[in-house]
């Protein structure tokens, strides 16, 4: 069997390999007395079901551009919902900021990739690049949002001091936003720098398995890495601007709820 091929009886080989790995993993876990013993088995079975369903959905979707767009919209909605919940946003303005951040970041990168002709706009390409970029934009959005709010929480007195001196919200949180952005961006930059040295990236391996030449797989991976960096940066820019735009009161509501009353009175005086 060359590569992964489920045609014919080859899937039996896959099942055998997975079963052996699952048994070995379960036995090793049992020797360490990791309970419940059936945990790994259930996890693998669940993964098998989920991957099967996903595979079948994608098999259908990649045949029709309209369904690819539909699926990307669904992914975007789920990404916005997940990221917003993870950050803890409350107001409509904050939800809009998170949504606009993810959509503009991923959307701009996809547009550049397609308009420059780096990728042909086939359903397969659109689904692959769209899925990767939306997912990464969501991750960066969540990490940035949480980092910023943690920083606001920890440095609340500094912000109050800035505002007391007459600064607006943007000026008061400028340092914190920069630090949060640097923290959030670090994993993505590191991943890009160490590509091929520490890990083999998924898109590269996937393209190779899909039959692309190593050169073509490398080209696709490069596009993905650049796209992820761009999507993440734009997403953070929108979030940093948008969350600060909402004002101190709005930021305080999600970062330091206990100081809500204080910030309100502070703003009234300001």
């Amino acid at each position: 069997m060359t590569g992964l091929d489920i045609a014919g009886s080859a899937w039996l080989h896959t099942a055998l390999a997975v079963a052996l790995l699952m048994i070995a993993g379960t036995v090793s876990g049992a020797l360490l007395d990791i309970r419940p013993f059936r945990g790994p088995v259930i996890a693998i079975l669940r993964a098998a079901i989920q991957l099967t369903v996903l595979g079948l959905i994608l098999q259908g979707i990649v045949t029709d551009l309209r369904w690819v767009f539909f699926w990307l919209i669904v992914m975007t909605c789920v990404a916005i919902w997940t990221s917003g919940r993870r950050i803890g946003v409350r107001t409509g303005q904050q939800w809009s900021t998170v949504g606009f951040g993810i959509v503009s970041g991923a959307g701009f990168s996809i547009a550049v990739v397609l308009l420059t002709g780096a990728l042909t706009p086939t359903p397969q390409h659109l689904l692959a690049i769209g899925g990767i970029l939306i997912g990464n934009a969501m991750t960066i959005s969540s990490i940035f949002g949480r980092s910023l709010l943690r920083a606001v929480h920890e440095n609340w007195h500094e912000i109050e001091g800035w505002i007391a001196l007459g600064a607006d919200t943007g000026q008061a949180t400028l340092r914190l936003r920069r630090e949060a952005a640097a923290t959030s961006f670090l994993p993505t930059v590191d991943q890009t720098r160490t590509t091929g040295l520490v890990t083999l990236p998924g898109a590269f391996v996937g393209s190779l398995f899909g039959g692309a030449s190593p050169i073509a797989a490398g080209q696709f991976q490069l596009i993905v890495l650049a796209g992820v960096l761009c999507a993440g940066a734009i997403c953070m820019l929108v979030l940093a601007h948008g969350l600060a735009q909402g004002g101190v009161r709005s930021l305080a509501r999600i970062a330091v709820p206990e100081t809500k009353q204080r910030s309100r009175s502070l703003l009234r005086r300001g």
């Binding site: 098999q59 259908g60 029709d64 309209r66 669904v74």
Partner: peptide, 28 residues
């Protein structure tokens, strides 16, 4: 038979626009 149309539209909803709206509501 294995196309987006036969997998997501024909079994229940008959037409693509209705199918997309219905699937969006279901997934939500």
């Amino acid at each position: 038979e294995l196309t987006a149309h036969t997998l997501f539209t024909t079994p229940w909803f008959g037409a693509v626009p209705l199918s997309m709206l219905a699937w969006a509501v279901i997934l939500w």
